[in-house]
Design a protein around this nucleic acid. Structure first.
Lengths: 125, 125
DNA sequence: TTAACTGTATTATTACTTCTAGTACAGTAG
DNA sequence: CTACTGTACTAGAAGTAATAATACAGTTAA
């Protein structure tokens, strides 16, 4: 499914959150698709189930997945995500990153081009 | 000068790096301005000098400040920053954040507006 | 109902990172 | 010289991440 860098200074569960988020955002994992179970993914990646659970819990609190006891964890449909708190974080993050990019010498046109590039690759409903 | 959240789950030195970066980017700290010395800032914030040094080392490696033994640490002039590695990281970060913002429901126009906002006035945290 | 899944929670222990503390060395400036 | 500056290192305390084992509750199919 994907790989993790155990030697990284970044916590495994954070790497997991990022990777899964990317898969969801880029529509590799479709709406309402079932994710591997906590224990199954733990076995696949040879890491502890608790670490997977921590990542899933984080993804759920951010609105990317939903979990049903006894059934499994599923991708939250994009259109139905309503997480004002996450949106606020992303806006703040964007502002900081824009300032940083400009400071490092990027022009707004370069940044805008990057946005169009991402926008194009996005096949949203 | 600023405040830190010791109770945060984010390491103190990382918070320091972020705050100082913001001050530099938003021109609160001017080009070639002298930063507080490692020991002085440590005393002001009542944290260990080693923690300050770690933050300064990080800022230096990212191209935001330069340090002269016996003299002090100073803000690296914006125009002279040439850190392709940092720029690459920022571009990747931007792409991820764009995809995330769009997934959470932001339109490209909203994102572009945010960029214009940052581009125009210098805003703070 | 039972068996085998699922998510979730708890506790204990280990491993790792962060932070602190103390010390030291080298360069600068008055 | 004295008193600043950055930088480096070791040691240990404190906090976080990861593992391990166990348990409970809900779902599903035989």
């Amino acid at each position: 499914m994907f790989e993790l860098d155990v030697r990284s200074r970044k916590p495994i569960y954070e790497q997991l959150v990022e990777k899964l988020k990317q898969l969801i955002i880029n529509d590799v994992l479709k709406e309402d698709e079932k994710l591997p179970s906590v224990r199954e993914l733990a076995q696949q990646l040879t890491i502890n189930p608790n670490t997977i659970q921590k990542a899933y819990r984080e993804l759920e609190s951010q609105g990317y997945i939903y979990s049903l006891k006894g059934k499994g964890s599923f991708v939250h449909p994009s259109g139905k995500v309503d997480n004002e708190e996450e949106l606020k974080k992303v806006r703040e993050e964007l502002k900081k990153l824009f300032a940083e990019a400009i400071y490092l010498g990027m022009t707004s046109e370069e940044i805008a081009a990057l946005l169009r590039e991402v926008e194009g690759g996005q096949q949203d409903d």
